[in-house]
Simulated scan of single mutants.
Amino acid sequence: MVYSWTFEDFKAAISEDVGSSSISDINLKLVYDELLERAKEKEEKEAKKRQRLADDFTRLLHTYKEITASSNWEESKSLFEESQEYRSIVEESFRREIFEEYITHLQEKAKEKERKREEEKAKKEKDREEKDKRKEKEKEKERKEKEREREREKGKDRTKKDETDSENLDISDSFGHKEEKKKEKEKDRKHRKRHAADDGSSDKDDREESKKSRRHGSDRKKSRKHAHSPDSDSESRHKKHKRDHRDGSRRNSGYEELEDGELGEDGEIQ
């Protein structure tokens, strides 16, 4: 083709036909440029026409659902060989080229669809895993919260039990202490009574001995006085009777006080 020639190639071809002296290089260059421009325009028109025919045929192929990414030329040709789009393309190779390009497009589209499907599947799987993780974390958090709540309740129960036990122990100790003090007081009171009774018996014995001694002394005195005067014997008996009466009253009063546990030997409160 002319547009693929260089000016030198064109000049050499012209020189062989018409001779080198008949046309100047300037004129040859003008002719070359004109022919080159026309050739380019014609080529562009042919290319546009081919592209239009190819687009028409491709659109026709889109209408056939039977043609898929795995279809081939021989099996699919019977579907469209009677159509105007197919017949408008003169070259068989060009027809097949358009068909193969369409199948490649379907294959790429199927791959893209598969890729998106896998991505969507992966995304859903990831979302599901994240959701499961969140649920697991929420369950774990809830479990820990319940565990802490149980521990707090146990702590409250232990504190309440300790307080109750402490109160019961205080009450028991207080009651026991009071009972112990009461027993000790009762024991001490009985001891003081026994001591007072012992002291009273001793005092009684001492008083009896003193009384006997005084009685013997009085009798001796009475004997001596009796020998001197009859009235002195009567007077002595009268004084003895009054003294015995006072001693008896004093002893009875001492015994009553000791029995009540109020006064001891020295008159102090027991």
Results as ranks from 00 to 15, higher is better:
residue 5 W to P: 01
residue 10 F to G: 02
residue 13 A to P: 00
residue 14 I to V: 14
residue 15 S to C: 06
residue 15 S to V: 05
residue 18 V to T: 09
residue 36 L to W: 03
residue 37 E to T: 03
residue 48 K to P: 01
residue 54 A to V: 07
residue 62 H to Y: 13
residue 65 K to P: 10
residue 67 I to H: 13
residue 69 A to L: 09
residue 75 E to C: 00
residue 76 S to M: 11
residue 77 K to T: 06
residue 79 L to A: 08
residue 81 E to H: 11
residue 81 E to Y: 11
residue 86 Y to G: 01
residue 87 R to Y: 02
residue 91 E to G: 02
residue 91 E to N: 13
residue 93 S to K: 14
residue 98 I to N: 05
residue 104 T to W: 14
residue 106 L to E: 06
residue 115 R to E: 13
residue 115 R to K: 13
residue 120 E to D: 06
residue 129 E to W: 13
residue 133 K to T: 01
residue 140 E to G: 04
residue 141 K to R: 15
residue 141 K to I: 11
residue 141 K to C: 01
residue 141 K to V: 12
residue 142 E to Y: 01
residue 151 E to H: 12
residue 154 K to P: 02
residue 159 T to P: 00
residue 160 K to G: 00
residue 160 K to C: 00
residue 169 L to T: 03
residue 169 L to Y: 03
residue 174 S to V: 05
residue 185 K to Q: 13
residue 187 K to E: 15
residue 191 H to V: 01
residue 192 R to T: 02
residue 194 R to F: 02
residue 202 S to V: 10
residue 211 K to A: 15
residue 215 R to L: 14
residue 215 R to H: 11
residue 225 K to Q: 10
residue 226 H to A: 15
residue 229 S to Y: 09
residue 241 H to A: 15
residue 242 K to V: 04
residue 242 K to L: 04
residue 243 R to W: 05
residue 250 R to Q: 11
residue 253 S to A: 04
residue 258 L to F: 05
residue 266 D to T: 10
residue 266 D to I: 06
residue 267 G to I: 03
residue 267 G to M: 03
residue 268 E to I: 06
